[in-house]
């Protein structure tokens, strides 16, 4: 028995008529554009009814000066099946405007989303509301920029240097 992705999309369409803004299929990859406010309900429905148990990745794109709203948060969901054809991957996108960079967290459904959302928060500055522990994960905690934003100069080492000098001072005063 193979898994029918079209049936899933039809069911989603009938259950969330105003939530799906756009559906794209390219080379057997399905992308759904979702309303930002509905991401939690939508993910929960996909997980509970169609077994999308695994969050592969959460990332973001900065479309500075190319598109408004400026950001898109991208979710990759995976469903495991005993047969090869039942392994299905689906991509969800959410548009995030520059003025309000808050998105609802999906960590309550997939605990694997915890660090992925922290990474997006660290590098793009998108806040995940409802995340249990939203701290920076890669850059130093007192770093004051979001390096993957397109308006950040990749050669700007000043914020990193400031954090490094602060860490050095703390190391000198502490017991080393």
């Amino acid at each position: 028995m193979s898994f029918d992705l079209q049936a899933v999309i039809d069911s989603l369409k009938s259950n969330f008529p105003d939530t799906i803004l756009d559906i794209k299929t390219f080379r057997n990859e399905t992308t759904l554009l979702i309303k930002k406010e509905k991401i939690q309900e939508f993910c929960m429905y996909l997980k509970n009814n169609f077994d999308f148990k695994f969050i592969v990745d959460i990332t973001a794109v900065d479309y500075l000066e190319r598109k408004t709203p400026r950001y898109e948060v991208v979710y990759y969901l995976h469903r495991f099946g005993p047969e090869y054809s039942e392994n299905v991957r689906i991509r969800l996108k959410v548009e995030v405007p520059e003025e309000d960079t808050r998105v609802l967290s999906v960590t309550p459904f997939w605990s694997g989303a915890n660090w992925l959302e922290r990474e997006v928060y660290d590098l793009f500055g998108i806040e995940f509301v409802g995340h249990p522990d939203l701290r920076r994960i890669l850059m130093p905690e007192e770093y004051n920029a979001h390096p993957l934003r397109k308006d950040f100069d990749v050669r700007n080492r000043e914020p990193s240097k400031r954090c490094f000098e602060k860490a050095l001072k703390e190391g000198e005063s502490g017991t080393s």
Binding site: S160, C163, F164, L168, G171
Partner: peptide, 15 residues
């Protein structure tokens, strides 16, 4: 060596 690692590197050198 990244800046985040640099303080660790310096600390080990100091030790």
């Amino acid at each position: 060596i990244t800046y985040k690692m640099a303080s660790v590197c310096r600390k080990i050198y100091d030790q």
